[in-house]
Design a binder for these strands. Structure first.
Lengths: 174, 174
DNA sequence: GTCTATAAACCGATAGAC
DNA sequence: GTCTATCGGTTTATAGAC
């Protein structure tokens, strides 16, 4: 009844857990299949390759981030930081996976997209051609908020968000 | 003339370069030996194992960070952030290697030490038993500064330091 | 100190039966 | 959809000659 391949979802869930716990590159297909009680070749019925499986897990976050920096005109800083925090918090599992294995992302040719996002986020916040000092403060703001999502993920969303966004705004205005 | 095993140092230099460029886990001993024009087994004369080589590269930074959080009484925030920035900037190559491959560090059982350092840094800054809000602001400050070392490493040290420390102080006081 | 040769294990991926 | 069996490649690490 409308669940033709529950297995595919279970593979992604197991993979996400292992990627989060021990990194993408340090996780083998055998570890994933073992956790589900199936064999390694069975994975290949659901995914064309290992990279295909990895991508399928990262894709939703990547797509939303792409839409975030694309469909948005410059607005006030608080609104931008608020919305960015929401996005990263909502995808914090995948965000941590990316943060914990950037080398793997480079192998998937995603490193350019990430740099492009950083640049466009800064442009939304600072306008075109910002000063070096402004870019440094933006790094403290975005980087500091991102670290909060990871380090304080066990605390209530609202508390972390309001304090982190407030601190980031103060850093921007320093 | 007092350089009985220059090779050992050259191995570490080649390994550090490759670790920085493509991650620890994605670098094989063969790649390292190829770059030096020697063979892979030759490495084992100088290092007991691959992990031993990796550790020898990370050790100086780890030791200095250990001393930093150990031999220091609570002082004013600016001084603490200044000295922390200096330390991370001085070891920014190794710092980036760690940042770019945390999963490998976990395999080396170094993850607990890193968490312990974070806790003690926060304690030096905030005193014992700080509020959740204070800890969140400290994360923005330390995390934001750390990201600056990585992202703006091509800019002049003095400029990055003064702006980043200023922004971190503002985040703390938000 | 460095070499050749090789062991032993693991990896991603495919073939083909059921 | 899942299995067994296996291929081809890579890795860390060791043995032993020089």
């Amino acid at each position: 009844m409308a669940r033709p391949s529950d297995t595919k979802t279970r593979i992604q869930a197991a993979a996400r857990e292992l990627f989060l716990a021990q990194g993408v590159r340090n996780t083998s297909l055998k570890q994933i299949s073992d956790r589900l009680g199936i064999t390694k070749p069975a994975l290949y019925y659901h995914f064309a390759s290992r990279d295909d499986l990895v991508r399928s897990i990262l894709q939703p976050f990547m797509d939303e981030l792409e839409a975030f920096v694309a469909g948005r005109e410059p607005t006030d800083a608080r609104r931008l930081l608020d919305d960015y925090f929401d996005l990263v918090w909502r995808h914090r599992e995948v965000f941590m996976i990316i943060l914990n294995d950037p080398a793997t992302l480079a192998a998937l040719d995603l490193v350019d997209r990430i740099w492009e996002w950083r640049r466009r986020l800064a442009a939304l916040l600072l306008g075109p051609d910002p000063s070096a000092a402004a870019r440094i403060r933006a790094t403290v703001a975005f980087g500091g908020m991102s670290d909060c999502v990871v380090e304080h993920r066990a605390l209530p969303f609202e508390e972390v968000k309001s304090v982190a966004v407030g601190a980031a705004l103060a850093a921007l205005a320093a």
